[in-house]
């Protein structure tokens, strides 16, 4: 039997992606702590390695060395299923991000759709975690996660749809190819509103401050992951960072010209743009207070959603007029 080359490619890519996700998480944890430190006028981690560079690795080791605990009366299957479920879809998403024309794990024609479909699975993990841990704080966190994710997915999709309208494709590589090397040739110039809506919505989708209500520690202690310790928590943690990378990568592809950039196109542009977006997300977290839950939903239903619909209709109209 001949093993298809595509399958081998996917398996190799999957292994590479796992390494990349782990590396990314380490890097982002380090970046987040360093950024936070400098924003707060302190050096951040400094003791382990030069400038604390291996601090995240030690953190990871510490998490792995800890005992796995499950509270009394928790639903064992759901409780352990949740962190795994939060991690697996993200791995799949990393596969189809085009880092450069050649550097794509799995070239799918409907890549954008695939990413959106699997990104929505993350909320299920939060639900199961909150429900399964037999903890009232977890339950409240899960309830918040549901309504927040249901709400923010809609403007997110609508904003992305405007780009799909404009480019006429769902293939990520083609979307990048439709943009030029210079910043004024990127989609963000044509669709600034869609970019803003997208960026706001991904803060809600990935539960990052100021929209980190499912885990708001000053209200719900830790929300859905109150009861998780050790690698159970570690997986949620890694999934959160991996999700951030995915949504920022998608933003780079859709709005910022992907791997294209002035002078030399290539994956370095992609990474640079993604990390700038990630930096903005981290910056926001360490600057703003948290919104209240009803305000969060109001922002979505009263502002983002109508704006996104208007943007979509406007795009469709202009496409019809100028096409």
């Amino acid at each position: 039997m001949k093993i298809p080359i595509e399958l081998i490619r996917i398996v190799v890519a999957l292994v590479a992606v796992m390494a990349w996700v782990g590396l990314n998480a380490l890097l982002l944890v380090y970046c987040e702590r360093k950024y936070a430190g400098h924003i707060q006028r302190r050096p951040g981690p400094f003791e382990v390695g030069p400038h604390g560079i291996i601090q995240p690795l030690i953190d990871g080791l510490k998490l792995m060395a800890k005992q796995l605990l499950m509270p009394d009366g928790a639903d064992a299957i759901l409780f352990w299923l949740a962190p795994i479920l939060s991690m697996i879809p993200v791995l799949l998403l990393f596969l189809c991000i085009p880092y450069s024309p050649l550097l794509t794990g799995w070239e799918v024609n409907l890549g954008l759709l695939l990413i959106l479909a699997f990104a929505g699975l993350n909320v299920l993990a939060l639900l199961l975690a909150g429900w399964g841990s037999n903890n009232k704080w977890g339950l409240l966190g899960a309830a918040r996660a549901v309504s927040q994710s249901v709400a923010y997915e809609i403007p997110l999709l609508l904003a992305v749809l405007a780009i799909a309208f404009q480019t006429g494709t769902l293939n990520l590589t083609e979307i990048v190819n439709g943009q030029g090397s210079w910043p004024w040739q990127w989609n963000i110039i044509v669709q600034p509103l869609a970019f803003l809506i997208y960026f706001t919505s991904i803060l809600g989708e990935t539960n990052r401050a100021p929209f980190d209500l499912p885990e708001a520690e000053s209200e719900l202690t830790a929300g859905f992951h109150t009861e998780y310790s050790s690698m159970g928590f570690g997986l949620f943690f890694m999934a959160e960072y991996a999700n951030m990378v995915v949504v920022c990568s998608v933003a780079t592809v859709l709005f910022l010209g992907g791997w294209k950039g002035p002078f030399f196109d290539g994956w370095w542009w992609f990474l640079a743009k993604t990390y700038v977006l990630l930096f903005v997300m981290i910056w926001l977290r360490w600057t703003y207070p948290r919104v209240r839950f009803d305000q969060l939903l109001n922002i979505n239903w009263k502002w983002l959603l109508p704006l996104a619909v208007a943007n979509l209709l406007g795009t469709a109209f202009l496409m019809k007029v100028f096409a």
Binding site: L113, L116, A117, L124
Partner: peptide
Amino acid sequence: FMQILIYVGAVAV
């Protein structure tokens, strides 16, 4: 993908 997006991501939630 639509099945996952709509049924798993939205309806199940």
